[in-house]
């Protein structure tokens, strides 16, 4: 799964870096972004991606913005040794130089709360990642089926 994710260097991910003043977050690349379709707007949506820091400085992802959801946040699902899963906001995400943070089912994920419109399979939405150095990155996230398990299965 992981290898597949790595090997597929998606043409899906767009990285629109901001100004050259933000060297740290400018070195961030997002790959294999995808989201699951929602049923209506009452349930939260989820999105996944790989965030890779190709720079020599650590970067910290501090927030998200999208017109799709009023409250986009990164959450972490964890499953304990009794098999009980729970979910909680993950807070700031630090990405070391040359490191990749993977948002995938059952782990870190973008939680899209208070959806403003249904997430329809085949459409996409833009999500802005906000970094602690003031840099922002806009990612176009394709919406896959509600039963999708990865960016392209």
């Amino acid at each position: 799964m992981k290898q597949m994710l790595f090997s597929v260097v998606a043409g899906l991910a767009l990285s629109l870096g901001t100004s050259a003043a933000h060297a740290g977050s400018d070195a961030v690349v997002v790959e294999d972004a995808w989201a699951r379709a929602s049923i209506g707007t009452s349930r939260p949506g989820a999105a996944y991606m790989e965030i890779r820091n190709r720079g020599e400085e650590a970067v910290t992802l501090t927030g998200l913005a999208t017109d799709l959801a009023e409250m986009p946040e990164i959450h972490r699902t964890s499953t304990d040794d009794q098999g009980v899963s729970s979910m909680a906001p993950a807070g700031d995400i630090a990405i070391a130089p040359e490191a990749t943070v993977t948002l995938e089912p059952g782990g870190l994920h973008v939680m899209l709360m208070r959806l403003q419109r249904p997430m329809m399979e085949g459409e996409s939405f833009s999500l802005t990642l906000v970094f602690s150095d003031g840099g922002e990155m806009k990612v176009e996230v394709p919406i896959r089926s509600i039963s999708a398990r990865g960016p392209e299965d």
């Binding site: 989820a46 994920h109 039963s147 398990r149």
Partner: peptide, 17 residues
């Protein structure tokens, strides 16, 4: 539960597979 955005659709997809 159906309001679960991450684990439940993943489990349902896994089982479907």
């Amino acid at each position: 539960f159906t309001f679960c955005p991450d684990v439940c659709p993943t489990t349902l997809s896994d089982i479907s597979g």
